[in-house]
Amino acid sequence: MENMANKVARIPNLVDWSTGEVRLMSAKCGSCNTYFFPKEHYQHRPGCSREGVENVLLPNKGKLASYTVQYYPCPAPFKTDNKITPYGIALVEFEKEKIQVTGIITDTDLKSLKIGMEMETTILEMFTNEEKQQVVTWAFRAVK
């Protein structure tokens, strides 16, 4: 993995790279087994006791469940130093966790996208902040 020392997520508690892999920060309910992302956005099964919710990281890899290519720039407060439009958006499925998560597609030929292909979680550098840190978001790319 590239040097992550000088990188900071634009909003904390969504993406983690402390394990050496980039992984999304989810939470799992110990009672109804539902996974949430973002982790505070609970969606319990009706009747669940809501006991035993614990933070978990989603696997680094999943499968492409759907995608689109956005041809117009995303309006503010979205912000990137480099022009990224047109950019891909993926819906990536983590099969065991029974959850699909959206994310910008990076480092991938958008013409090669195919539902079912393997994708990995990575980061996308958005802009440099006043502390000269690279501000990043999570993203997905095709597994090479």
Binding site: P38, Q70, P75
Partner: peptide, 26 residues
């Protein structure tokens, strides 16, 4: 934390029609 609109606009790059396109592709 309480308004996930903030995340989808700041980090997700997700204007409304993208949601419809993802479902339409499916």
């Amino acid at each position: 934390v309480q308004d996930r609109d903030v995340i989808r606009w700041k980090m997700g790059g997700l204007p409304n029609p993208i949601y419809w396109a993802l479902e339409c592709r499916k």
